[in-house]
Simulated assay, not measured.
Amino acid sequence: MKKTILAVVTSSLFAASANAAVVYDKDGQQVDIYGRMEYDAGQMSFKTSNAQDVKNFGGDGSARLGVNGKWATGSDVSLIGKLEYQLAGEGNDSFSSSDTTTTTFTDRYAFIGADFGNGIQATVGQQDSAYAELKDVTDTFNYFDGEDEDQFGNGRWADSYKVTYAADGWDLRANVAFSDTNKDPSAATTYYKRESALAAGYTFKLDDVQSLKAVLAYQAATQHTTTADNSTDSQYALGLGYTYDAFYLGSTYGQRKHDVAGYKDDIWTATASYKVLPEVTAYTNYEIVDPHNAAGKAAATSPSGENGEFYVFGSEYDFTAKAKAYAEFKLNRVAGYDNQYVVGMQYNF
């Protein structure tokens, strides 16, 4: 895939915008824009009245538009920034199977920072948490996967201070975030007062067609609830991603500790994909969230997969490097939950 100079220089920060087009480049200042248009249709989400029954066939259209900026300072340090918004074309901005979001216009990224060279960057604002490096090992599909690897949410944190190092096969990330809403600890809500995350990854280049990436990640959140203040939930995991020519195999395993509820979840995910033809890719995925050491829960009411278990089977056809169509089927293994499917098209620029 062709990359602009900006995307190459700041690859760890702007990896999602490799399609960006430079629109301004003068006197050490560079600005590029990128975007995506997408339409998905099928039985993708569940009813609000019954979270186990899938909705009838329907569709969601959406678009994204982002801007990257880089400004030379006359030294080895460059200033950098990113802003990205998403627009829901049909009044529904949800990409999750729960389909609970109704915002039609939302900000995804909004941060600024500095590139110190030699792979070191520091940024502040709304951005991916360090834990996203672990999630990326198996979050390789177009719609259904990536739902369980990160138990803290979508992985984008507001008020986030982040430092990264990406060079010589290493990918190291660390960040801390402070809640911007409900700062009053007496509020009758649940919210995170502080979040922190660490991730360390290394890619082993085995030969011209083989590579192995190992990732170790940890995140913690200090939260306020109606019954407890300054309690901490945490999650850790190890991920391995193996590439052999057109074949990819990835897996993550870890544990989420619920401090307030007093129990733990084991989380295991696995994904595999194979490029059957240059333009055709087939893939499959498995994810399970398994209650473990559940205080106050009888074994009979805490079966394996109680908190989530599913398979995903899918295929993708690439019209060009920036346009594709895909189809995915999600087999839900939790008792009583309907299965789901989606077909979609996506254009990137």
Rank of each mutant, 00 (worst) to 15 (best):
L198H: 02
P303L: 12
E328C: 00
A323P: 02
S49Q: 13
N230A: 11
D32P: 01
Y244P: 01
A72V: 06
L331S: 12
N50A: 08
P291N: 13
V23Q: 08
A16I: 08
V54P: 05
K162I: 03
R333V: 06
T284W: 09
E133W: 02
D150Y: 00
A228W: 10
D245F: 09
K297A: 15
S94N: 11
I5V: 15
Y347A: 03
G314E: 01
S12W: 01
W71I: 06
E316Q: 13
V124I: 13
S304L: 10
S302L: 11
F111M: 06
D99M: 06
T227D: 09
P278Q: 01
N68T: 10
G241W: 02
Q235T: 04
G125S: 06
Y161R: 03
Y341Q: 08
K2Q: 13
T284D: 11
G66Y: 02
N118S: 13
T227G: 04
K2C: 10
Q121S: 15
F141L: 06
V9A: 14
K275A: 05
V54T: 12
E328W: 00
A300M: 08
T226S: 15
G74M: 05
F46Q: 05
K322H: 09
G250Q: 06
G305L: 04
V215Q: 00
T226K: 12
D266N: 14
G66W: 00
K264C: 04
E195Q: 14
W268Y: 08
K205N: 15
D150A: 06
A295T: 13
